[in-house]
Design a protein around this nucleic acid. Structure first.
Lengths: 136, 136
DNA sequence: CTAACTGCAAAAGCTTTGCTTTTCA
DNA sequence: TGAAAAGCAAAGCTTTTGCAGTTAG
């Protein structure tokens, strides 16, 4: 069935992609928007959303579903975990972490068919630790 | 310092609490609202939100931060994991699962001070499996 | 050429908030 | 009786969508 939609590499899409890849801080849609406007001052927020959608759908970028009310995007498409700072919401990659969650468990203790799991670490980032030395 | 705020057990708050405990499906704020209105037809959505906030802040109920755009609430305040259905968004408890994520790892591979982690399982619930037998 | 995409603005979905009145303790 | 909470409605914030005009291929 040839119902695949052709996609074009427009200037807008290319720059959205470039900026998500360049920004290393897992930007929100709005942060991408602001970064892209430095190159394309007339781009609209709707276009940024649509492109973030297309790009993450196609796997060119990652869509990080984390706590909070906003999506975040990720230029690093390799499989990896994230740490989120409880204080400021910053998100960083955890490259070397190798966690193995027992998949069989889910089907043993529930009626669900296992599909996957989402694991996110929570911590205090260096900047926030400095701000509150003992982190009481 | 005596800046602790007194809290009152109003009729509204009590019924919100009762309904969250009674509903076993991790209801959204709106689902709680609809359930509570069966007892208090005049309650406002804002009051439900404020009470869900107070109750989860105090630990009387759980606030499930999951994928998607809505918060969900949980009458079960014991430590446990959740499975979320990819198809319909339903959330269930996984009582017996015992997963141990290596906490030290985070501080070894990053500058973050470890605080915790969030783990959520993803699967296909019985109802949705039936709807799509092979789940292709 | 034309399907895909953009810009703009309006709408949608969920949650929060301001204000006045009511109520719990 | 006074601080806390309710009710109502408006505002807020992020994301989505409709539509007319533009553009990549």
């Amino acid at each position: 069935m040839e119902n695949v939609k052709h996609q074009r590499m427009t200037r807008q899409r290319r720059i959205v992609l470039e900026e998500v890849r360049r920004l290393d801080n897992h930007p929100t849609a709005d942060e991408v928007y602001r970064a892209v406007r430095a190159h394309l001052p007339k781009i609209s927020l709707g276009t940024v959303y649509r492109n973030l959608d297309v790009l993450s759908e196609s796997g060119a970028i990652g869509k990080v579903e984390t706590l909070g009310s906003q999506y975040r995007f990720d230029g690093n498409t390799e499989d990896h975990f994230h740490v989120r700072c409880v204080e400021c919401g910053r998100i960083d990659d955890l490259e070397a972490v190798d966690v193995r969650v027992p998949e069989a468990l889910v089907e043993e203790v529930s009626e669900y068919q296992f599909v996957g799991y989402r694991l996110e670490f929570v911590g205090v980032c260096p900047a926030c630790r400095e701000r509150r030395p003992q982190h009481e």
